[in-house]
Design a protein around this nucleic acid. Sequence first.
DNA 1: CATGGTGAGTGTACGGCGTACACCTGTCAA
DNA 2: TTGACAGGTGTACGCCGTACACTCACCATG
Lengths: 246, 246
Amino acid sequence: MVEQADVLRRTPLSRDRILRAAVALADGTGIESLSMRNLAQDLGVVPMALYKHVANKDELLDGMIDVVVGEIDPPVPDTGWKPTLRLRILAARRMLGRHPWAALAIESRNTATPGVLAYLDSMVGVLRAGGFSTDLAHHVMHAMGSRILGFSQELFDASRRAGRSGATGPEPAATFPPEAAGRFPHLAEIAGAASHDGGSVVAPGCDDQFEFEFALDLLLDGIERLHRQGWTSARHHRPDHVVGPG
Amino acid sequence: MVEQADVLRRTPLSRDRILRAAVALADGTGIESLSMRNLAQDLGVVPMALYKHVANKDELLDGMIDVVVGEIDPPVPDTGWKPTLRLRILAARRMLGRHPWAALAIESRNTATPGVLAYLDSMVGVLRAGGFSTDLAHHVMHAMGSRILGFSQELFDASRRAGRSGATGPEPAATFPPEAAGRFPHLAEIAGAASHDGGSVVAPGCDDQFEFEFALDLLLDGIERLHRQGWTSARHHRPDHVVGPG
DNA sequence: CATGGTGAGTGTACGGCGTACACCTGTCAA
DNA sequence: TTGACAGGTGTACGCCGTACACTCACCATG
């Protein structure tokens, strides 16, 4: 025991070890309970020791983001831009499933980390290789937005809840209490409409993965259509904002 | 002077007055510097006085959200679901322009506020009135996600920056420092590609409003297509996740 | 071997945060 | 007149990030 703790304490701190411990801590107890003090304690070290390896908490978060973004599977060479993008976005989504805190963390930062930039750059590369003009690729990247990193972009994302990850089972309807059904009839009507009557779905709630892929494919199909039509912003962009794929 | 302060102090506190002051404070100095202490000081009152009217800071934030969501123009009756949705979403976006902190605040909360639920309910109502099945309306609401509240859904939203709102002019490229251009060639190529060569655009950066409407119309057009085709999840939802609008 | 610089880890402290809890005080019904 | 009560106050606790001065092991150099 003492020996093991001793070994732990003797293992030298390093930026890498700190980042890995921070990711593990955030995975386990949620990002909101990731404090420099908790992290230091996990590492068997005094809080201020961390500051020899990371500038401050913001930089720590940036590092954590790059760690998890680096986990996203690289793009697999495929027949075209569309399946390549699709598969990689689904891979990013799997990463977010492992690190539910990452979405909010990335969105809260005001500046892009190198890892995120590298990811985005490679995604643009896929588009360009698929024959997209710089113009269209630009607008497509904006239109995809955070979805290109696998974000669900739902208003109330169950997996985003800051508390303990994993086993968020008990309350699928926590965001829509039953007593509100009367005041919001359309929502109530909609809520159970994920009847999934075609499949053997067990849960009464809706299938997150299905909703994600539905939205993703809706977007990708629209993009493909624009690409085939040779869409160009020159024909649509007007100062009075009569715009759009129309 | 003393008299005015006295009048201020004499004006009884109320939940409403607190919420309005909180919104004004967040608008002015950013959500991150909205503390119970600062807010109390603005109101000429001691911090703990606030707790007679709001349960805690989370409930305060919920109240603030409902205040600003209530500012969104009501839906204007129109020829159909598409322009109605479009106009109201653009109205929501204008609200977010006035209250840049609101997007992050709404996304960070894990439970829907009554105001947000009312907004969503009315949007579902528009879809249903437009002839959407409960099934399709359900999936459409998921696919729109936070965009239905006017969220840009961009990864690095300039207006989301927590600091001072307004006059964020000086650094449009803060998220993409020029020294990174070499390491991210595709991004560099894309960055300037918002050439807008068809219009009289002044700024070299891209036009947020254009990008937003581009993405919105891409989505709405796709939805319209599904609607016309009588899309139903029964034909697409399979347990093995071969899904999508295809 | 002595020495002195260097850098990792430590200890203390400060100002801020949300908020529990006991307290005062002005108002108003009985 | 009184006594309950609601709204505002003061103090205090335990968190937070982190500035700053420190100890001390290590190692290149004399």
